[in-house]
Simulated scan of single mutants.
Amino acid sequence: MTDVSNNRLAALSEAGVSIWLDDLSRERLESGNLAALVRDQHVVGVTTNPTIFAAALSKGESYDPQVRELAARGASVDQAVREITTTDVRNACDLFRATWERTEGLDGRVSIEVDPRLAHDTERTVAEALDLWKTVDRPNLMVKIPATVAGLPAITRVLAEGISVNVTLIFSVERYRAVMDAFLAGLEQARANGHDLSQIASVASFFVSRVDTEIDKRIGELGTPEAEALRGEAAIANARLAYVAYEEVFGGQRWRELAQAGARPQRPLWASTGVKDPAYSDTRYVDELVAPAVVNTMPEKTLLAVADHGEITGDTVTGRGEAAQEVFDALTEAGVDFDDVFAVLEREGVEKFEKSWAELLETVTEQLDRTKG
């Protein structure tokens, strides 16, 4: 690792961005790869999702010993998936325990997602979140809950139990405001339930690149010069508007009362930061979203690109809300229906994770069957 790349990642961290890796596998853990990223690349947390686990289970032989043990026990496929995924997450939590202690619980966090098939079922989401928390049994865990309409009350109820939550699949500022409201309500209930608010952490995962992918497609369909001039502008503007909302809510009186009781703010987390369109810089969703007190969770490819040639020039978010709103106003004028965009993105996001979960179940079924012979 060169001094230059270390300097880029150090500059990102010093600007207030916590660098989390958007990936986890048994191979990363056992090979020392994840530990090396923590040591050399300023990585201070990990996020997972069903797609990540489906990919991990389909490659290599790292899971074979555990699969053999599970098969010998007669475990069902659902039991096997639960044990395999929570084992990886528990071990990752242990790896990040020193980071968690050094940052007094701010970072060193590892996220695991509730079954995506429960995205529209509040009661079962709450039950699964509680079970995941107990099963992993590590204080630096975060349970991921989607920001669907059914997910919002689940977020509040899980936080009220003193459990740290990563809210995922947020696409619009309107829904993000509802997520922050659910967070504040959850902390208020947690305080009433006697929990130590300083021990509860939360992030709000605001998805970035998928917004450009969907809106750029619609810009192409509109085919006007006015629309084309805005290609690639939406996602960063959307995230910057989210940060404006974050500053507003966490500068308000309702938050100040919770902060006085020891609470920590729910940090914005930029997710889906790998660039989908090769026409764009592969570091744009990092370079253009530098701000104090945020998380950027990156696939390793993006992390290494930032280390190699990222352009970290300080805060690129604060004070840019007005310009971001102008982008949205121009896109609306050009014919982009944002309500429909965000509805499509949420639906497709849930469907993608459901598909990955089905692939994960299929892979584990095949491995169990093969082991049984």
Rank of each mutant, 00 (worst) to 15 (best):
Q367P: 03
F250K: 06
D22S: 14
A129F: 08
A75I: 08
A330L: 02
R68D: 07
R117H: 13
K301Y: 07
Q266F: 09
P146G: 09
V364M: 09
V336T: 08
V77C: 13
Q266M: 14
Q260A: 15
A237L: 06
K355F: 00
V249M: 10
D131R: 15
D23L: 00
E248S: 13
Q199V: 09
E366P: 05
A229S: 07
T48G: 05
V336L: 12
I215Q: 08
K352G: 06
A98K: 13
A263K: 09
G194F: 06
R218Y: 06
G232E: 04
W270I: 10
G314Y: 05
E104F: 10
A72F: 06
V290H: 00
A259R: 12
A36H: 13
V158A: 04
L361T: 14
L57K: 05
V4H: 11
V4G: 00
A160E: 02
S164E: 09
T224S: 10
T313D: 12
K355N: 04
D121Q: 11
W270Q: 02
N238V: 13
A147Q: 01
A201S: 13
A239F: 09
T103I: 08
P265F: 11
D308H: 11
A259T: 07
A150I: 11
Y243N: 01
A334K: 01
S272E: 03
E226C: 00
V38K: 04
D212A: 02
D78H: 15
V167W: 09
T363R: 10
A55I: 09
R347M: 08
A190V: 07
H120M: 00
D329I: 01
A291L: 03
E362F: 11
A291H: 04
E351W: 00
